Computed example of a mutant assay.
Amino acid sequence: MSSFKSEPFLWIHLAGIVTFPVFLGIVWFGLSVSDRLPILWLEILLMVGVGVLPIFLMQWARPFEIFSLLVLAMKPDKITFQQRQILSLFKTPRQQILSAATALAMVGILYGLYQLPPLTAIASSVLTQSRFVGLLIASIAFAAANLFLQVPISVLGVLSTGEQQFAKIEPYPTEKIPQDFTLTGFRVDKIIPIKPVPPEK
């Protein structure tokens, strides 16, 4: 059987981390619009509530089901034996610890963004001085940044598993995938036209 580390979906979602700094740049831009609220921590708590908690809770309770791409997701009954073993790794306590650590790191990153000088001149030339608009842009971008950090970090946690350890992993039950994982998009039989390698008997 081929190594689980050659699974294309793992590397596709790991590569999503390249968008992380782009979304952070958008967050900085959004925060630069208009004057900041008098109570800094109130604004940070709002940003954390919108941009960190939902993604963290998803990864903690119902991890993102990585066998999907854009608006397409593989039907649970089309996911192979090896792929279901990979899904089992996403439900381990270690993955929850990684999710919690990533969420805390995102809070620290958000605080760091607040310490940067605002892009006032650029922001004011593009948008009207509306704090609501700025916060909306920053919150949405921060949620996207969190997603594109949380998922790759969880993928790294899976990739750090040894081959011998992986061989002992039980595949995740097909019938439990929809209730225990977050599936997005239209469900299809196949996304990547690669013939799966059957497990060894």
Results as ranks from 00 to 15, higher is better:
residue 3 S to Y: 10
residue 4 F to P: 02
residue 7 E to M: 15
residue 7 E to Q: 14
residue 8 P to W: 12
residue 13 H to R: 06
residue 14 L to V: 13
residue 18 V to L: 15
residue 25 G to S: 04
residue 26 I to A: 05
residue 27 V to I: 04
residue 27 V to S: 00
residue 29 F to N: 04
residue 29 F to Q: 03
residue 31 L to P: 01
residue 33 V to H: 04
residue 38 P to S: 12
residue 44 I to G: 02
residue 44 I to N: 02
residue 51 G to S: 15
residue 51 G to A: 08
residue 52 V to F: 00
residue 53 L to A: 11
residue 55 I to G: 01
residue 57 L to Y: 14
residue 58 M to H: 01
residue 61 A to L: 12
residue 71 V to Y: 07
residue 75 K to T: 07
residue 76 P to Q: 09
residue 77 D to Q: 14
residue 78 K to V: 12
residue 79 I to H: 02
residue 85 Q to M: 13
residue 85 Q to R: 15
residue 87 L to Y: 09
residue 89 L to Y: 04
residue 91 K to S: 14
residue 97 I to S: 08
residue 100 A to S: 04
residue 102 T to C: 07
residue 108 G to I: 07
residue 108 G to A: 12
residue 109 I to H: 05
residue 111 Y to M: 11
residue 112 G to M: 14
residue 112 G to D: 03
residue 113 L to W: 10
residue 113 L to Y: 08
residue 115 Q to T: 15
residue 116 L to C: 11
residue 121 A to W: 05
residue 121 A to C: 03
residue 122 I to Y: 12
residue 123 A to V: 01
residue 126 V to I: 12
residue 126 V to W: 07
residue 131 R to K: 06
residue 132 F to T: 03
residue 132 F to M: 05
residue 137 I to Y: 14
residue 140 I to T: 06
residue 142 F to S: 04
residue 143 A to N: 06
residue 145 A to C: 08
residue 147 L to W: 09
residue 148 F to E: 00
residue 150 Q to L: 12
residue 155 V to W: 08
residue 155 V to R: 06
residue 156 L to V: 08
residue 156 L to K: 06
residue 163 E to N: 13
residue 163 E to M: 14
residue 165 Q to W: 14
residue 166 F to I: 10
residue 166 F to A: 07
residue 169 I to D: 07
residue 173 P to E: 14
residue 174 T to H: 07
residue 178 P to A: 10
residue 179 Q to S: 11
residue 180 D to E: 10
residue 181 F to W: 09
residue 183 L to Q: 05
residue 185 G to W: 06
residue 186 F to N: 06
residue 188 V to S: 04
residue 188 V to C: 06
residue 189 D to Q: 04
residue 194 I to C: 05
residue 194 I to L: 12
residue 194 I to T: 15
residue 198 P to W: 07
residue 201 K to V: 11
